[in-house]
């Protein structure tokens, strides 16, 4: 919890220090940074370079060459194969995220502002659900979704994501609301406000940053998930991760297609991260630092 605050203020670092003579230590530091950046960016270079090659231009021995002619058709080809799945993922991620954010907000509010005896134990029991390997519930989950008649429909997948998203969204909101001074609540109680009025008038209006964090986090998680996607859906409702794994695992060796597909599948979450990175990091930290 406490770990969140410093990351929110990266600009606070005293970068505007007066110019100093360049020390050898700084040179080593920048050299290390560049080296590390290479490690992280080289795969991206290969990804883009390969995606832009035409199938005949792809040759293992010229992996590193930038394509001589840019083949943008890779993207339209990839889209024609997994475009429908991207839309599935979008519908899935947006719907599941909204539901679990709402649940998480209410839970977090109830758990942090209306503590009852055993609330912490209950919360710990809930949190455990965040860490379980989903393989341990997969077979009953599959049977359950099937018995609800939701198997193969995107709603079965949404249900699974909403339920298994409850722990993390509750955690983030509970931590977020823990920072809201109790005095505010007390004041509202004295004014005669009840559970829902306080939520509506005091809590919800200041929850926007919490919602942003939760929505980004949950969206990324749901978008990227694979195991449920592989077991609960059928051809028409498969999300993009599963479609991509098939594109890449296919017999064809034209690697530009899976690479272009990987870019399409990565773009939404990548954009979210680049545009709203601060909140993304907060979700990241909330996932590990308890309340």
């Amino acid at each position: 919890m406490t770990a969140n605050a410093p990351v929110n203020a990266p600009a606070a670092a005293p970068t505007a220090a007066p110019r100093r003579p360049i020390k050898p230590g700084r040179v080593v530091m920048y050299a290390l940074l560049v080296l590390a950046a290479l490690f992280f960016l080289v795969p991206v270079y290969l990804l883009v370079a390969t995606a832009l090659k035409s199938p005949d231009a792809i040759n293992l021995s010229t992996t590193w060459h930038w394509p001589s002619a840019l083949n943008w058709a890779s993207f339209s080809d990839a889209w024609s194969k997994i475009g429908g799945n991207v839309l599935n993922s979008l519908f899935l991620a947006v719907t599941a995220t909204l539901f679990s954010a709402l649940l998480g907000s209410l839970n977090g509010y109830a758990l942090s502002k209306w503590k009852f005896r055993g609330a912490n134990t209950l919360f710990a029991l809930m949190l455990f659900g965040m860490f379980i390997p989903y393989q341990a519930v997969l077979i009953p989950l599959f049977q359950f979704i099937k018995s609800l008649g939701l198997y193969g429909s995107i709603w079965g997948l949404i249900l699974a994501h909403v339920v298994y998203g409850i722990p993390i969204t509750t955690l983030i909101f509970r931590n977020f609301y823990a920072d809201v001074p109790d005095a505010l609540i007390e004041a509202a109680t004295i004014d005669g406000a009840g559970f829902w009025q306080i939520y509506g008038r005091v809590i919800f209006p200041i929850s926007i940053p919490g919602f942003v964090v939760v929505i980004i986090w949950q969206f990324t998680q749901v978008w990227n998930e694979f195991l449920f996607a592989a077991t609960l859906t059928n051809t028409t409702s498969q999300p993009v991760t599963y479609a991509l794994s098939q594109l890449a695992g296919g017999q064809a060796v034209s690697w530009n297609l899976p690479m272009a597909g990987a870019i399409l599948a990565a773009l939404p979450t990548l954009l979210v991260y680049i545009l709203l990175g601060r909140y993304f990091v907060r979700g990241l930290l909330a996932g590990s630092v308890k309340g």
Binding site: A37, F40, N224, Y273
Partner: peptide, 15 residues
């Protein structure tokens, strides 16, 4: 340094 975190393991695996 942080962007790969936003990717799916499937995307990372494919790359």
């Amino acid at each position: 340094f942080l962007f790969p975190m936003s990717l799916s393991f499937i995307v990372t695996g494919t790359i």
